[in-house]
Design a protein around this nucleic acid. Structure first.
Lengths: 222, 222
DNA sequence: GAACAACAGGAGCAGGTGCTCCGCTTGATG
DNA sequence: CATCAAGCGGAGCACCTGCTCCTGTTGTTC
């Protein structure tokens, strides 16, 4: 690496080379530690594993939450991109839906922090939630058009179901690895258009309070 | 109340009357607070709400965990007894299964601590887990005998499913109250004997189908 | 190589929480 | 009513954890 390269690298990010290295090390270590222990882990553990002092860590990320959000967003977006590509590449609509769930749960099976954020809020940030919602809606619409999805199943149903199964993956990972595939299969069969009985109506109170989540059509346009 | 009665009451429990009152107040307050806030709540809040000092609280329960365990076991056993009676009283086997899930989720919808313990370990204590397992197995066997349950569904499947749905109830309680009924319906339809395809084996293909997830360090390229 | 700004590091601070200690109070007893 | 052990209350201790401060160091520039 030439001196010019060093200079360029430093200028691009506005940071010194060692700072850049440390930032990468922190993100890498935080990714591992959060995945293993969840978001509640001690920040000192991350500093230790990245070979960096507390001061350095907090220079790069002003709060623990911001570090967690950064890491989660990286991991989540990487998954979303994969999931989107896979869904597009799968011709059969129902298989696209099945593949979405399987990839989600496979991916989350060893990442506590991601499951925590996904199962409780749908993702690390509002934009991630929207992307996820939009992806699910695309897959759902294809299934509806093909007539393979149970009548009345909403994007929100699929979203909440994926969160619920995510939790199940995590809590059964140690004692019953792989059992989540059975629960997934059961749920998927319940989602098939073979089931003709209508689903119970969601609480009217819920629809009234339905907040910031834009209608699926709006998300596709954007 | 005669003096003898006082003496008897004190002797029976080995405690003074005021101590007995305080113990009851602590359990009652702890039940509410744990239900509202979960097991992570500050012990001071329980002491405050029960109108008792910290010393008194810790005189009756040597640790917070023991208090939590006591309360959870009381609540859990009360639910188990109800659930058992209801199951026995329901003649139709499938309705007994449906009723079990509905009662469980209705009951847990407003109790954070119970869900936490149920979803992660199946209950506050090993004996509770066993009672719960046993109840599920009774209902399951009736459904199997009646030919209404999908072939291959195990007691463990139903147990894990109930834990998963419990989590869903809790995480959607605020934003989407009542939506869990839709997820429950979907799951129950997937459990019906209408579904003839076999479920995946418990320990099959769990590892070889796992997709490699990019390490955080690979994701920050650029 | 010299000068300097950016950076590293870890001891220490602040706030929160489980739990204890000990002087004061009260119910049971004769 | 007097006695006193059982019981009570809450200030305080110990530990954990997010975060900061400040001194010494290192990368970058000329």
């Amino acid at each position: 690496m030439t001196l010019a390269d060093h200079a360029t690298a430093a200028t691009r990010s506005g940071r010194r080379a060692d700072a850049e290295r440390n930032r990468a090390a922190i993100i890498a270590a935080a990714g591992e530690v959060f995945a293993e222990c969840g978001g509640g882990v001690d920040v000192r553990e991350i500093a230790r594993r990245s070979g960096v002092g507390m001061g350095t860590l907090y220079r790069h990320f002003p709060t623990k939450d911001e570090l967690l959000a950064t890491v989660l967003e990286l991991q989540f977006n990487a998954w979303l991109t994969d999931a989107h590509q896979q869904a597009v590449a799968t011709e059969d609509p129902w298989q696209a839906l099945v593949g979405f769930f399987e990839q989600l749960l496979d991916n989350q099976a060893d990442n506590r922090a991601v499951v925590e954020s996904y199962a409780t809020t749908g993702g690390p940030s509002e934009s991630c939630v929207q992307r996820c919602y939009s992806l699910i809606d695309q897959v759902r619409t294809r299934c509806v058009d093909a007539g393979v999805l149970r009548t009345g199943v909403t994007t929100e149903d699929l979203f909440l179901l994926s969160g619920s199964l995510s939790q199940a993956v995590l809590t059964t990972a140690d004692s019953h690895p792989g059992t989540w595939r059975r629960l997934l299969r059961i749920s998927l069969d319940g989602l098939s258009s073979r089931n003709t009985e209508p689903l119970p109506e969601p609480d009217s109170a819920a629809t009234d309070r339905a907040l910031p989540r834009p209608a699926p059509s709006e998300m596709i346009a954007g």
